[in-house]
């Protein structure tokens, strides 16, 4: 890609990434949540890939970080669910305190699950685009 595209994407990709994180951790207060945040994170990664090519990220090998983050996200989700099982005897029990509504540390396990889903979705879609663009033949 040309120099302009590289510069602009270098400026904008971290901002998009930050916006994705914001949407994820405010998912229980404002519109958004884990799915939207994860997709926006993947969008930032895809912008970087399209501008620089995959070699920049060192992701041409068989194993890459996005795949690992996807597995980690779904494991986090299961882990939160099983914690509910251990603490209260019910799978998916909302075991943490409700907190004060309309504050960022509230609503029990919902922010944790949002983060898990965001990591999982972002990793998954990054893996999809990487596999389609990078795997030759």
């Amino acid at each position: 890609m040309s120099e302009i595209v590289k510069t602009v994407s270098r400026l904008f990709s971290p901002l998009i990434f930050l916006f994705g994180i914001y949407i994820t951790i405010h998912g229980h207060l404002t519109p958004g949540g884990g799915f939207a945040g994860g997709v926006i994170l993947a969008g930032a990664v895809v912008l970087g890939i399209l501008a620089y090519g995959g070699e920049k990220f060192g992701l041409t090998g068989k194993k890459n970080k996005a795949s690992a983050s996807e597995s980690l996200g779904i494991l986090l989700f299961w882990f939160v669910a099983i914690l509910g099982l251990m603490f209260g005897g019910i799978f998916f029990l909302n075991f943490m305190g409700k907190g004060i509504p309309f504050h960022i540390f509230s609503a029990g396990i919902i922010p944790l699950c949002n983060i898990g889903i965001a990591v999982e979705v972002g990793g998954a879609i990054s893996v999809i685009v990487l596999a389609l663009i990078l795997f030759e033949k």
């Binding site: 949540g33 799915f35 994860g38 997709v39 979705v121 998954a124 879609i125 999809i128 596999a131 389609l132």
Partner: peptide, 19 residues
Amino acid sequence: LTAIVIGLATTALLVAIAV
């Protein structure tokens, strides 16, 4: 909300098989 993201993943799977 969940179905949209799943739709993206399955579309990508179909595209991969087509390629």
